[in-house]
Design a protein around this nucleic acid. Structure first.
Lengths: 354, 354
DNA sequence: GGATGGCGGGAGAGCGCTCTCCGGGTGCAC
DNA sequence: GTGCACCCGGAGAGCGCTCTCCCGCCATCC
């Protein structure tokens, strides 16, 4: 069967299929791409020839002429030594994936892309050189656009991408305005939900462990929480800043207990820190939620993984990531599409901890 | 500046740069790719022209002629409804990234790839259709090779990839032999290390919580542990099978305590389950490590995230992933390179839990 | 019956790049 | 001064695909 089908080595081309099917290259292309009316009989013959030759369209050749890579970049962007020290080429990536958050983003993006047979290229931009690399990658058309998840609010990449006129969508509102679409959560509402729940449970001496306050999200959650508490008669809420890691949650809770032993409710900036807080509360003999109620944020795997289900403010990360991918697709297909932002509503998920 | 440089819209091409520099296309190409001796003066002129035009080589065009995509696929492969139910398009991805293991694999791969200015394309192959998609993607030359991480031993993808003659490297030895290179850990040695440590600590009634036993790694860890225990006079070791999740670790530990209340040491198949086990032990009033010593596996973030440092068998996942990428690169550059397997040695990391 | 229209299919021109082949110039040795 | 080797740089083919243009065929209508 393979005698005259593939005289020259290498993968079969459109030409080979055309020869086998007894038609022209153009017709095979039409059938493969499913355009224009092609005689059903010929269609069938072509399809058989495709199977017989084991043909698969060459993506590079197609990209060259259509000017579409059929690929998007998923960029995780940070700044040098973002969270902790600078300790190796893969340390950044390791830190990034230590948080279930990025996994959820990937899951959401992939969920949208999978049915469309496209796949994300994973890129990390931590140093200026890498930012250049990402930019170059996009500019040379290796990817049709970028999904950018910044680890920090001051990330310079979005502005660079926007200046280059490349299609891109951001996760979370950037610290300073950039002419790019983004998806985000109404973080302040999330803080408010947590505050209302704690107050409704009867907490009178609530405190909060925040995430890093140099990102808008952290500030918004805090101010939403604080404002709502103030409106309910608790204007002075103890605040400890954490770093989104379990250990930092433990440390923050320990400090909170030392300084405010009578605390009866804690709103924690993410579930991972909340787990750490619960741990410390347990060690200090506090029962959850009776002595101290704990509300987390995210509704990530950490919220349900332990013995005690965590009451938390749900951030629909997967949906947000999928929406981000959808927006990017629109921007790619319609370059003149105006920039928009889609803000998701948080939702309180009540479990055992509060 | 941009008047005569870019009369036609779109990105500048080699031709444009050549015109500006006053040389031929070929010379620009030579300078850009840094090959053959080109007169330093001309080199400089070309470089200036590149900057002036803002030229970036078109990857598709390059790939078309070099027959190299300059991209590799990082495939996470499983089988329908692998671990739990089949609950949505992104559920698989979400499950995958819930485990810190995959994050470490990504980090290791990226660590190797980053200095080489290549980036992985992330693909998930859960259904037969998706396996076909991955295969097609590889066959059409969209990626030069694949790094395959199988969630299950019976994954059919490696065999398909091997049959197609595509360069690929696996993480972990497949259940049935496949002519592909792979990296792995000496899991049995890991089990042995854990056993020796527990015995050396004075444990006389050790038990084990294993991972899923349908993967070679799980079996090997168990048999290594069991053999070593038997050699040290404890031939009958209670075994409970877990699913690598924290909750399954909790359940397994609870069962173990119910059936063997006098257990004084536990070897747990991964750190995440070990955390769950510790939690349950604490709730049952057992002190760690005095009443019950706990040894985990992996040395993942979970081992150090909690209050109590987990003694664990270190699996250098990042190094293994990097080696996987290195092997793939070799296979791509030297197609006739024989298949090899690189087995890493586990290492006992002693912390507080044992 | 000839003009008209629509549709199925082929021919061919590139997309932007790399790379082989060649030619002309220069330097060195005889 | 001539021959030769070497090196730098240009010309041009062609990678595999899409897509426009065009032609030929058949059905339809006046």
């Amino acid at each position: 069967m393979s005698g005259d089908l593939r005289e020259h080595a290498g993968a079969p081309t459109l030409e080979d299929v055309a020869r086998v099917a007894g038609v022209s290259r153009a017709t095979v292309s039409r059938v493969v791409n499913g355009v224009r009316n092609v005689d059903p009989g010929i269609q069938e013959a072509v399809r058989r020839a495709v199977v017989a030759t084991g043909y698969a369209p060459n993506r590079a050749a197609r990209a060259l002429v259509t000017r579409r890579a059929g690929t998007i970049a998923l960029v995780v962007s940070g700044v040098d030594g973002g969270c902790a020290g600078h300790d190796g080429p893969d340390a950044f990536a390791a830190r990034v994936f230590a948080d279930p958050f990025f996994g959820r983003v990937v899951a959401g993006v992939v969920g949208f892309l999978r049915p469309r047979a496209t796949h994300p290229v994973l890129m990390f931009a931590e140093t200026p050189a890498e930012r250049e690399q990402v930019l170059g990658y996009l500019r040379q058309g290796s990817a049709d656009g970028a999904l950018i998840v910044s680890a920090h609010g001051e990330d310079p990449l979005p502005a660079l991408v926007a200046a280059a006129g490349l299609p891109a969508v951001l996760f979370a509102r950037p610290a300073r305005p950039v002419p790019l679409s983004h998806v985000d959560l109404a973080h302040a509402d999330g803080g408010r939900l947590a505050a209302e729940h704690l107050v409704a449970r009867g907490c009178r001496r609530a405190a909060t462990i925040t995430g890093p306050l140099d990102v808008p999200a952290g500030q918004d959650r805090l101010s939403g929480f604080r404002d709502a508490m103030a409106r309910r008669g608790q204007p002075y809420v103890p605040i400890v800043e954490g770093r989104f890691t379990q250990r930092s949650g433990e440390e923050a809770m320990a400090r909170l207990l030392a300084e405010h032993p009578d605390v009866d409710g804690v709103f924690v900036g993410n579930d991972v820190m909340a787990r750490g807080a619960c741990q410390v509360l347990g060690e200090h003999g506090r029962r959850i939620p009776d002595d101290v109620a704990v509300v987390g944020f995210d509704d990530s795997a950490a919220a349900t993984s332990g013995r005690l289900g965590l009451t938390t403010v749900r951030q629909p990360v997967e949906d947000m990531a999928a929406e981000m991918a959808r927006l990017l697709q629109e921007h790619i297909e319609t370059p003149e599409r105006p920039v928009t932002s889609v803000v998701f509503a948080p939702e309180l998920v009540v479990r055992e901890s509060a």
